[in-house]
């Protein structure tokens, strides 16, 4: 297997090392067209803003190749977006990660201080975008990242604070951006601006999703909310009757039972039955204090219970008091 060594910097000069080893030349400090021997394809590098550069590679290999990235002095983070429709291997700290295709994990963030190597599959179109970002731009992000890593759902491993990598999914809007990049030709007049724009928007999407993660609660749709409120109103209107059953309520909301129960819990943070009992008890308390009844049993029947002990125990559960303590007897 052929091995290629290279390093990254924000400025274009690093490309010459890569080009030398693949026996080709850098055109305009931007484009490398790989020779047929290695594979068909090209790469493109450009500086987006001071502190952000983007490297784009679109290549079908003919021989196995291992692209090893060496540590360089630049303080960088590398955002690797992979949109190949097969699995490539990325090796970080002697651990192999599969990257590529949509259902696999397709985003890696690597610290420039960690060595890594990239092994694209042979005879497949490998398509990746790497965004190099100066660490000083990201200090805020890193601080936040370290404090939040435990909550992060994706599979990630954190090294020491200043040396970390992250492994996760690209969000949908970014995937669309990358897909449209796939259809462009690097020789187009508009390509340079287009890839700059894409790189910035990718970063924008990543950070907005990243900072949004906390309030990502998967809310109910409007239609579901309406259905929930409808059944809630129904329960309140029939508070003096028996519990109408979840089957009935779910039909009313136009959902399956299990979906209904989950949605109800999301909406009101309790189960339908517990909600119903709680409301009943609140009414019960009012009735007890109203002084309209002679005995507890009368109140109990009013609320459609048939066992006083059940009523008492539920009442105690909720208010930590016995019904008799709140009872005001009807005066003669």
């Amino acid at each position: 297997m052929k091995k290629i060594f290279h390093y990254y910097s924000l400025t274009p000069e690093w490309q010459h090392k890569l080009a030398d080893q693949t026996e080709t030349k850098v055109i305009d400090n931007k484009i490398i067209i790989f020779p047929e021997k290695i594979g068909k394809g090209q790469s493109y590098f450009t500086q987006v803003t001071p502190g952000i550069s983007v490297f784009f590679i679109d290549l079908s290999l003919n021989t196995p190749l291992k692209i090893c990235r060496e540590v360089s002095e630049n303080d960088l983070y590398i955002f690797h977006f992979d949109l190949s429709e097969h699995v490539n291997l990325i090796k970080i700290n002697n651990e192999d990660y599969e990257i590529g295709s949509y259902d696999k994990l397709d985003l890696a963030i690597i610290d420039n201080q960690i060595e890594s190597s990239y092994k694209p599959a042979v005879h497949e179109r490998t398509f990746a975008v790497r965004i190099l970002v100066d660490k000083s731009l990201l200090s805020n992000f890193i601080a936040k990242y370290s404090s939040k890593e435990t909550k992060h759902q994706t599979k990630d491993k954190t090294q020491k604070k200043d040396e970390f990598y992250h492994y996760g999914n690209i969000d949908s809007n970014s995937t669309l951006l990358l897909q449209s990049l796939k259809t462009k030709s690097i020789h187009d007049l508009s390509f340079d601006s287009f890839i700059k724009g894409t790189a910035l928007k990718l970063l924008g999407n990543f950070f907005s999703r990243f900072y949004d993660l906390e309030n990502n609660t998967n809310p109910l749709t409007q239609a579901e909310n309406e259905a929930m409120n409808k059944t809630k109103d129904f329960l309140l209107e029939n508070i003096y009757g028996p519990f109408p059953s979840v089957v009935f309520l779910a039909t009313m909301a136009g959902m399956s039972e299990s979906k209904y129960k989950i949605a109800f819990k999301k909406c009101f943070n309790t189960t339908p039955n517990n909600f119903f009992i709680k409301e009943k008890m609140t009414i019960g308390k009012e009735l007890l204090k109203s002084g309209e009844f002679h005995t507890l049993t009368e109140v109990m029947y009013e609320l459609n219970y048939s066992k006083l002990s059940y009523f008492t125990s539920k009442y105690y559960e909720l208010f930590n008091r016995k019904p008799i303590d709140d009872f005001v007897k009807k005066g003669h």
């Binding site: 287009f194 724009g197 910035l200 924008g204």
Partner: peptide
């Protein structure tokens, strides 16, 4: 996003 948009519009 804004700078990205500007670049894409120019493209």
């Amino acid at each position: 996003n804004l700078v990205g948009t500007v670049h894409m519009l120019i493209a």
